Amino acid sequence: MVLITNLPRDSAVQRELHGESAEWSLTDHLLAAVVDNLAVANWMFQCVNIGEDDDQPEQPKPVPRPGVKDADGEESNEDSMAAGDTADTISPAALARFFG
């Protein structure tokens, strides 16, 4: 049992036991969080700085993560973190008040 539990993260046994999440390290999760937060920050900047007559940019989608369900309720097959959950409630007026 000691040998099995200490197998490398990318081994076939670990993938069978934990699925895709076995291949994701802490660094991978942190990098996905950074990408998601940067995308949301850029989106907020665009929302605040567009004219009133222009269309609002689409909210960024978070990087898919193993074991995390997307907005449709389906589990993603690609790797990725859900930091954008609260971004649905942010209005351009609230962003403008926050930034200025």
Score class of each variant (00 low, 15 high):
residue 86 T to C: 07
residue 82 A to T: 07
residue 37 N to T: 15
residue 7 L to K: 00
residue 71 A to V: 11
residue 96 A to T: 13
residue 94 A to F: 01
residue 51 G to C: 08
residue 88 D to Q: 15
residue 43 W to D: 00
residue 99 F to S: 10
residue 47 C to V: 14
residue 9 R to Q: 14
residue 79 D to Y: 11
residue 64 P to A: 11
residue 50 I to T: 15
residue 10 D to E: 07
residue 30 L to H: 06
residue 23 E to N: 12
residue 60 P to M: 02
residue 49 N to C: 10
residue 65 R to T: 04
residue 15 R to M: 05
residue 80 S to W: 00
residue 40 V to T: 07
residue 84 G to P: 01
residue 57 P to F: 05
residue 87 A to M: 06
residue 91 S to M: 05
residue 57 P to H: 10
residue 42 N to P: 00
residue 33 A to G: 09
residue 35 V to W: 01
residue 70 D to Y: 02
residue 97 R to E: 14
residue 47 C to K: 13
residue 99 F to Q: 09
residue 68 V to Q: 04
residue 27 T to W: 00
residue 95 L to S: 10
residue 14 Q to C: 10
residue 29 H to E: 01
residue 41 A to P: 00
residue 93 A to Q: 11
residue 75 E to K: 12
residue 40 V to L: 14
residue 36 D to H: 01
residue 9 R to H: 05
residue 73 G to R: 05
residue 18 H to K: 15
residue 59 Q to W: 03
residue 1 M to F: 11
residue 70 D to G: 14
residue 82 A to P: 01
residue 19 G to K: 03
residue 16 E to F: 14
residue 33 A to P: 00
residue 63 V to P: 03
residue 63 V to C: 02
residue 87 A to C: 12
residue 61 K to M: 09
residue 34 V to M: 05
residue 39 A to S: 15
residue 43 W to E: 02
residue 21 S to R: 12
residue 12 A to Q: 13
residue 70 D to T: 03
residue 68 V to K: 02
residue 87 A to Q: 00
residue 17 L to K: 05
residue 13 V to H: 07
residue 73 G to F: 03
residue 68 V to W: 00
residue 49 N to V: 03
residue 60 P to N: 08
residue 15 R to T: 06
residue 79 D to H: 13
residue 92 P to N: 04
residue 58 E to P: 10
residue 96 A to F: 01
residue 28 D to A: 11
residue 86 T to W: 09
residue 66 P to D: 04
residue 83 A to R: 11
residue 43 W to I: 01
residue 80 S to V: 06
residue 61 K to D: 09
residue 4 I to G: 09
residue 90 I to A: 13
residue 48 V to S: 09
residue 95 L to H: 01
residue 19 G to A: 07
residue 82 A to D: 08
residue 49 N to A: 09
residue 60 P to K: 04
